[in-house]
Design a protein around this nucleic acid. Sequence first.
DNA 1: CGAGAATACGAGCAATTACTCGTATTGACA
DNA 2: TGTCAATACGAGTAATTGCTCGTATTCTCG
Lengths: 209, 209
Amino acid sequence: MESEEARPRRRQARGERRMSEILDAAAAVFAEQGYEKATTNAIAAAAGISPGSLYQFFRSKEAVAQALTDRFTAQMRDAHGEAFAPAGLAALAALDLDDLIDRVVDPLVAFNIANPGFKALFARPDMPPGLATAAGPIQSALLGRVEAILAVRSPGLSAPERARSARVLVQIFQAMTPVVVAAASEEEREAEVRELKKVLRGYLAPLDG
Amino acid sequence: MESEEARPRRRQARGERRMSEILDAAAAVFAEQGYEKATTNAIAAAAGISPGSLYQFFRSKEAVAQALTDRFTAQMRDAHGEAFAPAGLAALAALDLDDLIDRVVDPLVAFNIANPGFKALFARPDMPPGLATAAGPIQSALLGRVEAILAVRSPGLSAPERARSARVLVQIFQAMTPVVVAAASEEEREAEVRELKKVLRGYLAPLDG
DNA sequence: CGAGAATACGAGCAATTACTCGTATTGACA
DNA sequence: TGTCAATACGAGTAATTGCTCGTATTCTCG
């Protein structure tokens, strides 16, 4: 997974801490500026270091985004993997549709709210080719899991139909996530989440066995 | 609406033609590069003129986008206003839900396919502040019309509920449009449109009186 | 025809930005 | 303690890009 460190550094205490700080700063700057408009100098400044120092740890702006994506992926797996885990699939199969949606959507929404920089890398339509690959893992992990759930809940679907439906579901989620994250108040946010779930339910109900 | 022309030009035959050519070029470049990555020099080159000539007609890149948006708005009104027109509302009220969706979605899809540059200005999440205003008219026109239809079909909704539902519907459409437009084959495209309609139907059915 | 405005050109400017490089400091380890 | 790599700095560079400016050409109109 990490084949880019041909020569491991020695001073890892300071270094690792710096890298983490840089990623924190990058997440914040990406969240508020978007990927393209975020400048590497701004990220360095937000991390309290010089541009040169940033490039001591990351080869390029894209490498920062890549590392941040990796970190998000790991965080998501650690925090919310349960709901999606293969072991949980059987339990998910027996659930009420509304409960199923809650079980899947709520953790994802919580994660997106806790990590506002996430959607800047996840829900971006104008990714540079390299970054599409970077965000790909998250995207395809989510897709694969949704497909797995569909396979259990809607055995009548052919494989291509299942793939298409999963794509549509993920797309709906991605489209509505920015609105949810940007909600001004808590009530507003809950209302947006309710709408998101309505959309998902409306699409899923006819498919659901 | 057009308060920016304090001093009308004289040679309008050549000039107007050039402006139209520039907008054609801009639509093409925006379509394939996106707004940010599209350079004014590239637009000028695509129009077969020099950068200086472009700026004889448009004060800035943003002004080009603004003018293009205006042209799209007018085209959309001319071509597909009927389906949305106030006069047609009564007819729409009596329709089957599937027919209603066809009536509204099909022209919009056709327009987006015929004008691939449209979505670059319409479905962009990272608009500069000025451009949000530029794209606003299209967005809010569409929103207003969807709201009008909802008012007729779902009289039980409160005004805020109606506004929110309209926003959700437009958002779904925007999110799925790029996939529809980019479809590789005709069958693929039809399948995507079917999914789009399924999503809309699933969300609307419970609301529909 | 002659004048003035509209159109056209394209080299180049000013600002931005991802990234580098020469150098200085810090700290682990012999 | 001395050494050397890791860390840190920040002015500077090359490339990009929106846009300008001086100038040349074309057209309208009297």
